[in-house]
Computed example of a mutant assay.
Amino acid sequence: MPNSAMVSGKAPLVLLHGVTMSAKVWDELIPLLSPHHEVVALSALGHRGGPPPTRRPARVSDLIDAAQRMLDDLGFDRPHIAGNSIGGWMGIELARRGRASSVCALSPAGFWDAGTHGQTGGVGRLRRIAALTRITRRIQPLALESATIRRLAMRDIAIHADRLTPARALDAATDLLHCSITEDLLTTSEQIAPLNPLPCPITLAWSAHDAIVPAEVNGRIARERLPQARFEILPAVGHVPMIDNPDLVARTILASTGASIRDEPPNPIRD
């Protein structure tokens, strides 16, 4: 089910989360975006709060198909879309299908040659996070009371996870534990194909400290496959930048939709 802040008369903006997460990862962003857009955060197929998969192994294309059905159910033809990691991948593919007015892809997954280090390096880190989260399930409510443990436990996806409340950190762990298709997605052979010309404006906003799909590897491939996209580096954030700096991410998304001009823009990288 979508987690939404709906305001009549404003252009719709759909938020798509990353692998193992849920719509709740956008909770801090929705109040910042809602003055400008009708905001809907969706939980993906096979993820906590999302519809169950109808086949296994599930594929990224199944997540995209399910998201397109959700857009249909909401009556959204071509909303603005912002997505992180696999959510960014989904946004780009929805744009390819003609279902987006603009896309802001935050450190999107899928820009790799399947089976190479550009994919397997990040997958290895995500598998370690998943294994640690499962092993420590019983002690998490107590352990995550510590800001130091929150920062260390989430260091592969954020650099300031200590800023999260214990409840929000526990929510993230619970999201992972309730994702039924984690291994399906981590072993996919899918990837993002070149897209030129673009079907709509696309911003590739890459986290400067991304340990999962680093800009120097996956960002380089992204620029080759989407040469017309705007490419930016978001300073001082990790793979899930909403954790580290929701204000920066909100400004970046609103700049991509044309809803506002950022007072403090990220550092652009231009050819």
Rank of each mutant, 00 (worst) to 15 (best):
Met1Pro: 03
Pro2Met: 15
Asn3Val: 10
Val7Thr: 11
Lys10Gly: 09
Pro12Asn: 14
Val14Ser: 08
Trp26Cys: 01
Trp26Val: 01
Leu29Gly: 00
Ile30Asn: 01
His36Pro: 02
Ala41Trp: 00
Leu42Glu: 00
Ser43Ile: 09
Ser43Pro: 09
Ser43Arg: 08
Arg48Val: 06
Thr54Ala: 13
Arg55Leu: 06
Arg56Cys: 05
Pro57Met: 13
Val60Pro: 02
Asp62Ile: 04
Asp65Asn: 13
Gln68Cys: 12
Asn84Trp: 11
Gly87Arg: 00
Gly88Glu: 03
Met90Phe: 09
Ile92Ser: 11
Leu94Lys: 01
Leu94Met: 10
Leu94Ser: 00
Leu94Pro: 04
Arg99Glu: 00
Ala100Pro: 02
Ser102Ala: 11
Ala105Ile: 05
Leu106Pro: 00
Gly110Gln: 03
Gly122Trp: 04
Gly124Gln: 07
Thr136Lys: 06
Arg137Leu: 11
Arg138Phe: 11
Pro141Leu: 01
Met154Trp: 14
Asp156Glu: 14
Ala169Phe: 00
Ala172Asp: 07
Ala173Asn: 04
Leu176Tyr: 07
Cys179Ala: 15
Asp184Tyr: 09
Leu185Thr: 06
Glu190Gly: 13
Gln191Cys: 12
Asn196Ala: 15
Leu204Val: 15
Ala215Tyr: 08
Glu216Ile: 06
Gly219Thr: 10
Arg220Gln: 13
Arg223Pro: 06
Glu224Cys: 06
Pro235Tyr: 14
Gly238Tyr: 09
His239Val: 12
Val240Leu: 14
Pro241Thr: 13
Met242Trp: 04
Ile243Ala: 04
Asp244Glu: 15
Thr257Met: 07
Thr257His: 11
Ser260Met: 07
Pro268Thr: 05
